[in-house]
Design a protein around this nucleic acid. Structure first.
Length: 251
DNA sequence: AAGCTTCCCAACCGCTCTATC
DNA sequence: TGATAGAGCGGTTGGGAAGCT
């Protein structure tokens, strides 16, 4: 809002195309000194001839230190499939549930492997076969080591609200500590009416049963434990964290 | 070995949302 | 309250790598 550095004020001078190691270094150094945000000022402060948009993208998708460089695992693939079926192409939301993965990465992965096929099926060819084999092996493993279903705790019956897995409740309580009372968190337990009336939480692509079980069954408690903290990230506000809990719980 | 096909992913584009004035 | 700028999101593209014939 300072008006000094708009997306395209000197657009004709912006460099495009692949980033060089030198540019990466400049950007990393800039973020180290000034932190994330105010991307439009990067060019002025660091000397990079890149648009703020380009800088942000490069940082988010490639340079961030917490990014995973490994291939997407069958476990992560299962999560992607499940969340995509629930939320549709809300890649950024899905990415928040996968530690170290970016929306771009997940989007690319989905398009490559599932776009032209039904979820759960794979493209032809040797690489696709190997992937299918890997997925099947993983699923077999899961069957051989059945996970305990999550422990659900009923929200007080008189409220008519839905349930939340107990361990999530603990997290909610922990998050809410010093911030708000449990009464204030009632939105985490939406009634069917509330769910229906709140368009932002409905998803026409989903149409599922609206329980936790599906996501939960992907990896049992272990999976949930992995997903929840990372889904929140380090810069996520309490409100955002609760919102995410709500989304996971209401789908 | 060479040409073709498919996979993979970085990067761009256009649009929308949000915050600020 | 509308205008503007910053930020983020999803869709798309282009090119290199890997696999296939």
């Amino acid at each position: 809002m300072d008006g000094g550095c708009g997306w395209g004020s000197i657009e004709e001078a912006w460099r495009k195309g692949p980033w060089t190691a030198k540019e990466d270094k400049l950007l990393v150094e800039h973020v180290r000194l000034h932190g994330e945000g105010r991307w439009n000022c990067v060019s002025m402060l660091s000397g990079l001839r890149r648009s703020g948009k380009s800088c942000r993208l490069r940082w988010v998708n490639y340079l961030r230190p917490d990014l995973k460089k490994e291939k997407i695992t069958p476990h992560e693939e299962s999560i992607i499939i499940e969340l995509q079926s629930r939320w549709g192409n809300r890649w950024s939301a899905i990415a928040r549930c996968l530690p170290g993965r970016t929306d771009n990465e997940i989007k690319n992965y989905w398009r490559t492997h599932f776009k032209k096929t039904k979820p759960g099926t794979h493209l032809r060819g040797a690489r696709g076969d190997a992937r299918l084999q890997s997925q099947q092996q993983y699923q077999l493993q899961q069957q051989q080591q059945p996970q305990e279903p999550p422990a659900y705790r009923e929200y007080p019956a008189e409220t008519g609200r839905s349930t939340l897995p107990a361990q999530f409740e603990e997290q909610v309580a922990s998050l809410a500590q010093d911030h708000m009372s449990m009464e204030d968190l009632s939105f985490l337990y939406p009634t069917p009416d509330e769910l229906q009336s709140d368009a932002s939480f409905t998803d026409e692509a989903s149409g599922d049963e609206g329980s936790w079980s599906c996501l939960w069954n992907l990896g049992g408690d272990e999976h949930a434990a992995a997903v929840m903290p990372t889904a929140f990230g380090t810069n996520t506000s309490l409100q955002e964290q609760l919102h995410l809990l709500y989304m996971l719980g209401s789908k």
